[in-house]
């Protein structure tokens, strides 16, 4: 079946089988390999993208269900190679990654939680960051620097 959607602001359309996962559509058909598959069992969060502005595990959604929707992947955050998104800068500056495999999902989850908290006018505390990282697993950092990165990125996202 033909599936069309908007990915990182661009209209795309591909002929795929009905059982194609959104992550397969993004990685295999669009060749946007920034979105990762870590566990394939919906637990690790390396595949998190935004679907109509909401953090979503792209390994747990069919591409067909995203027909007509707006998807943002980690590739869609930075304006250019030299002009990273504030959350990407924060991860870089706070040593928020080691191997980097989980990072795309971490950053997409992070920008989602910051946007939600800012919209609701709530303060994103360290505890809240940890609670909202529930669905993202990192096997290197022990999370402390990821939490620090998100807090830093959150403060920069307000001023941007």
């Amino acid at each position: 079946m033909k599936i069309a959607m908007t990915v990182n602001g661009k209209s795309v359309s591909r002929e795929v089988s009905d059982n194609t996962l959104l992550v397969e559509y993004i990685r295999d058909h669009l060749r946007l390999t920034g979105t990762h598959v870590g566990c394939d069992t919906s637990q690790c969060g390396a595949c998190v993208v935004h679907v109509d502005g909401q953090a979503t595990k792209s390994c747990t959604m069919l591409a067909a269900s995203a027909e007509g929707l707006a998807v943002t992947t980690v590739e869609g955050l930075a304006k250019s190679k030299d002009d990273l998104h504030p959350m990407q800068v924060a991860f870089k500056e706070n040593h928020g990654l080691q191997c980097g495999f989980c990072t795309p999902g971490m950053i997409m989850t992070a920008t989602d939680m910051v946007t939600r908290y800012h919209t609701q006018g709530k303060e994103l505390t360290e505890d809240a960051i940890r609670v909202h990282l529930e669905g993202n697993i990192c096997r290197c950092t022990g999370y402390h620097n990821i939490v620090k990165s998100i807090a830093d990125g959150a403060s920069k996202m307000t001023t941007v």
């Binding site: 919906s42 679907v51 747990t60 989850t109 909202h132 669905g135 993202n136």
Partner: peptide, 9 residues
């Protein structure tokens, strides 16, 4: 329930 991404869907 679950995590934020799961709660969105």
């Amino acid at each position: 329930i679950g995590d934020p991404a799961v709660r969105h869907r």
